[in-house]
Design a protein around this nucleic acid. Structure first.
Length: 482
RNA sequence: GGCGCCAUGGUGUAACUGGUUAACACGCCGCCCUCUCAAGGCGGAGAGUUCGGGUUCGAUCCCCGAUGGCGCUACCA
């Protein structure tokens, strides 16, 4: 409504890795917040660490964002292309005496740090360059001496901020070192670039991981020195692995794209992620399934919890089955087609047959992958028999003959429907004095290659008479003992 | 080590400003269905809210301490 009041938020990943689960959740929260309040969601790439950043990672992050369905309104902006803003900001801070040139070399600093730790002293910068007269420093600098710019942290007192999630957080200034704003090569550190950009981009709310809480006072100090209005900080608890340590590669998949590759429905992933560290409140405690629109409508900062959350693969898997089941076959089809493409599988059925088969199979699907693996027999004649299934239900030597005979019945039958197929089979079983179950289970494996499938007669109807007949006969011709 | 943050079943969360048999979901276990099951239906176990003090008629909820976990502690972000 009022453009001046609408919030502006951002997701600011650094392209030193793919989009991981934690980053994705941060992005999601920002996106939900922006959408809920009709605000602006900005994507900013923090690539000021040239050593570790790469373009490929940027692409990976964008791909991840798109997969979860998080569209941004502005950007992506690249900090590497905004260097002059940071340099100007640093100069401004130096000019106002809030920052100073530091001529200590990286090697020297490391050395002193090592000494300090060895001596049991806190390894903070000793501020020695702070006492160099500004004129002297400027002269040395213009003479060509390499200099970093450090922020001049106030001597006493403390710096506090009111976090929307954690409440008031306070740090003694004595605990904050004179951090580097601008490296000696003119590239800004994170501390400077975030603040300069957040101010420049007129961000109103900073929603980010709780690992930034300790950095926040350094930023608050800069806002004040720059005379800028403080945004609202909202720190989000971290996502941990099952062993409650920080989620990392060693916990398995941590890249968002890995979940796509596992056959997860993007909306299921989003739903799962939204509920990690956030809850819609007591009015919705009996509900777990929330569409994107639901989430947008319900999302607010108050629902964010303070404690870290453990990533539970089982629960994600459950969300996935729920979404697959709830989606119409038409909606599932493009997702499944992606799987087929990835598996280099080409279905040989009409769209109508495909859609019907998807509808039949989806209650039993654990992931989209199933449609390209264990469900292949429904979409093509190019499929394999699961050895375990063959052993379990097709090992009786009498079966192949019986199934062939049954096939003949089907071939000769005037009609072929779910009901008639069942009738034919049961009559046949009674006639032969064998248990219908044995025939049904054997047929299931013969028709689908799997021990698990929907109701056999529904499967038969989906496959059609001709395929049922030929697959039933194929058992005796090509014994597929596993 | 210093500083900061957090703490409800195995996991994610709920419990209005202190008063509930501490709720829901995932997972787990069992039973049913019977043509399979990773499907469906039904049921069950599992926390007295990390521990110890305090305030209060009464604490999951407020205060203090302990313990544990996590984060930060770079010319990384």
């Amino acid at each position: 409504m009022n453009p001046n009041n609408s919030p502006r938020v951002r997701f600011a990943p650094s392209p030193t890795g793919y989009l991981h689960v934690g980053g994705a959740r941060t992005a999601l929260f920002n996106w939900l917040f922006a959408r809920h309040f009709n605000g602006t969601f900005i994507l900013r790439i923090e690539d000021t660490d040239f050593e570790r950043s790469s373009e490929a990672m940027v692409d990976g992050i964008l791909e991840g964002m798109r997969w979860i369905g998080l569209n941004w309104d502005e950007g992506p902006f690249f900090q590497s292309q905004r260097l002059s803003l940071y340099q100007q900001t640093a100069e401004k801070l130096v000019a106002s005496r809030h920052a100073y040139y530091c001529f200590c070399t990286k090697e020297k600093l490391e050395q002193r740090r090592a000494q300090a730790t060895a001596a049991g002293r806190p390894p903070m910068y000793d501020r020695r360059c702070r006492s160099i007269a500004p004129e002297t420093a400027a002269a040395r600098k213009s003479a060509g001496e390499a200099a970093a710019v450090r922020f001049s942290v106030p001597d006493g007192g403390s710096t506090a901020f009111d976090d929307a999630v954690f409440g008031r957080v306070e740090f003694a200034n004595a605990e904050i070192e004179d951090f580097v704003l601008l490296r000696s090569d003119g590239i800004p550190t994170y501390h400077l670039s975030v603040v300069a950009d957040d101010i420049d981009m007129r961000l109103t709310h900073i929603i980010r991981g709780a690992d930034h809480i300790s950095n926040t006072p350094k930023q608050v100090l800069q806002y004040r020195a720059l005379g800028a209005e403080l945004p609202v900080f909202a720190h989000v608890p971290l996502i941990l692995g099952p062993d409650k340590t920080r989620l990392s590669k060693r916990h398995g998949a941590t890249s968002v794209i890995a979940y796509k590759d596992m056959g997860i429905v993007p909306e299921a992933f989003r739903n799962f992620l939204a509920l990690l560290g956030w809850s819609p409140g007591p009015g919705h405690k009996d509900r777990e399934i929330f569409s994107s629109d639901d989430l947008i409508q319900l999302f607010n900062l108050d629902g964010i919890s303070k404690s870290n959350a453990v990533f539970d693969n089982d629960k994600l898997a459950w969300f996935n089955t729920e979404y697959i089941r709830a989606y119409d076959p038409e909606r599932l089809l493009p997702l499944i087609q992606d799987e087929w493409k990835a598996a280099e599988f080409t279905p040989s059925r009409s769209t109508g047959e495909i859609l019907a088969a998807i509808d039949l199979l989806k209650p039993r699907a654990r992931s989209l992958k199933d449609f390209a693996t264990s469900f292949r027999a429904y979409f093509s004649d190019d499929f394999e028999y699961d050895p375990a299934a063959v052993t379990k239900f097709l090992s009786d030597p009498a079966l192949p003959v019986l199934l062939e005979e049954l096939a003949a019945r089907y071939a000769a039958a005037p009609e072929f429907s779910e009901a008639s197929a069942e009738q034919t089979l049961r009559d046949f079983a009674a006639e032969k004095n064998i248990k219908a179950g044995a025939l049904i289970n054997g047929s299931r494996v013969a028709l689908t290659g799997q021990a698990v499938a929907p109701s056999l007669f529904a499967v038969m109807a989906a496959l059609g008479k001709d395929r049922v007949v030929s697959r039933l006969c194929a058992v005796s011709k090509a014994p597929t003992s596993g």
